[in-house]
């Protein structure tokens, strides 16, 4: 495992030694069904759901920030201060999850319904059409109709340019390796003032 990944994830050797078979379900979502239902547009993103099936934190960046924009793809290194901030954010987020697990609704990280709704935008008609293009493209790709599929993929990306899930998934289908290759890093750099990950608001602004 690259040292950078260990540093930024906060995984020391003690934690890694405990790694084993996950005790939770790992599901395969080939058609991005969860992405559509929960409006997930990048990874990693998380959703918190309580025992009653109520969303207490809608889809959000899972303790990650735009540090990836400082990554040197040649050396796979980042400036030390970026790594430190990434580790701090990641650790804070995992601690928040632990707090919720222990305290439930009493956790300060559980959002009020009003706050959860404020953070829930949901898709508009253009986003829904983008998903339609992705789904049709994915179906055609699976059936071996590559050229037609790529056209629908391109339209999905055009209609929803903020979905890195569409961008990276369709690029990878088009050309294995492209999702994490030079095109990806160039696209991230081209964001300019826009974020790659929407900044995480860990604590509610109202409750």
């Amino acid at each position: 495992m690259p040292a950078l990944l260990k540093d930024i994830m906060g995984w020391d050797d003690r934690l890694l030694a405990r790694a084993g078979v996950p005790q939770y379900p790992c599901l395969i979502d080939q058609k991005h069904i969860v992405g559509e239902l929960y409006d997930i547009i990048n990874v990693p993103m998380t959703v918190w759901i309580d025992e009653q099936g109520r969303i207490v934190r809608p889809a959000e960046s899972a303790g990650v920030n735009d540090g990836v924009r400082s990554l040197d793809p040649q050396t796979f290194t980042m400036p030390a201060e970026v790594v430190a901030e990434g580790k701090r954010l990641r650790t804070s987020y995992v601690d928040a999850i632990r707090d919720w697990v222990v305290k439930g609704d009493r956790s300060e990280f559980v959002l009020s319904p009003e706050e959860a709704r404020r953070r829930t935008e949901g898709p508009d008609d253009t986003d829904a059409l983008a998903m339609a293009n992705f789904r049709l493209g994915e179906h055609l790709f699976e059936r071996g109709h590559r050229d037609e599929a790529l056209k629908y993929f391109a339209e999905a990306r055009r209609l929803r340019p903020d979905s890195w899930c569409f961008i990276r998934q369709t690029w990878e289908l088009e050309q294995p390796g492209k999702a994490s290759g030079p095109e990806f890093f160039a696209a991230v750099q081209a964001l300019g003032d826009r974020h790659y990950y929407t900044p995480l608001e860990l604590k509610p602004s109202a409750k």
Binding site: C26, L27, I33, D39, P58, G122, P123, D127, A128
Partner: peptide, 25 residues
């Protein structure tokens, strides 16, 4: 291909009732 209406998806999310799904492990 026929998808879901965007307003229906938005309303479902804003209800805060977690949309159900089924996926393979």
């Amino acid at each position: 291909y026929f998808g879901e209406n965007a307003g229906t998806r938005r309303s479902a999310l804003k209800s805060l009732e977690a949309p159900d799904f089924e996926l393979p492990d």
